[in-house]
Design a protein around this nucleic acid. Structure first.
Lengths: 94, 94
DNA sequence: AAAATAGTTAAATGACTACTTGACTATTAT
DNA sequence: ATAATAGTCAAGTAGTCATTTAACTATTTT
């Protein structure tokens, strides 16, 4: 897996910097995939707003979309997510 | 330690969403403290710009400032940082 | 006391963005 | 075929923000 540079990492954190997007990511953090409709409904937002935010998440490399029929299934790229989180995880030396 | 709510967590990630601030945080992620001047110099930015960003980091609860003489020593609140990172760390069940 | 150093503050500018609304496409159900 | 459902796109608005510049305070040095 190629390492993310500074700007890419900042872009990922920027994707997490909005409460609505953070809820989306937290909801997908278990690695499962969900439809756009399900996510929008569970958060009480319009599908248009979810689409808007999902573009930001996708551009940051966090969201992966799979289309089946009229539904879109969304899941996280956990590698990208954990690589960014890990860059700040400096455990205290024992 | 009180748990951070959704908006507070988003605020922390927002503090990490700028490349300049992300560099500041990464530089302090080892838990050590550094003077504002040292950080500004090492990043090649003006002290004014560091001050601007340090306010954002402080308001997010990430940065703790200690003043001694004419120098200010900065360090991270690692509890806040790790609590936010941990909220997205859903390890795959074995 | 004067000069240098460390840090803060405020204003101005230009760019970016969250959300709403309405129209649009594609798929599924009746 | 018609209607309903899932999703996308684009424009408009209002608000936020990163950076620069310059003036300012407080501390240390000479």
């Amino acid at each position: 897996m190629p390492e993310l540079d500074l700007n890419q990492r900042a872009k990922v954190f920027n994707a997490l910097s909005d409460p609505t997007r953070l809820q989306i990511v937290e909801q997908l953090a278990d690695g499962q995939e969900r439809t756009s409709k399900d996510i929008a409904d569970s958060l009480g937002i319009t599908l248009a707003l979810f689409c808007h935010h999902s573009n930001t998440l996708t551009q940051a490399g966090l969201l992966i979309k799979r289309k089946q029929g009229q539904s879109g299934y969304n899941r996280l790229d956990l590698d990208v997510l954990h690589q960014c989180l890990g860059s700040l995880d400096q455990p205290t030396s024992p």
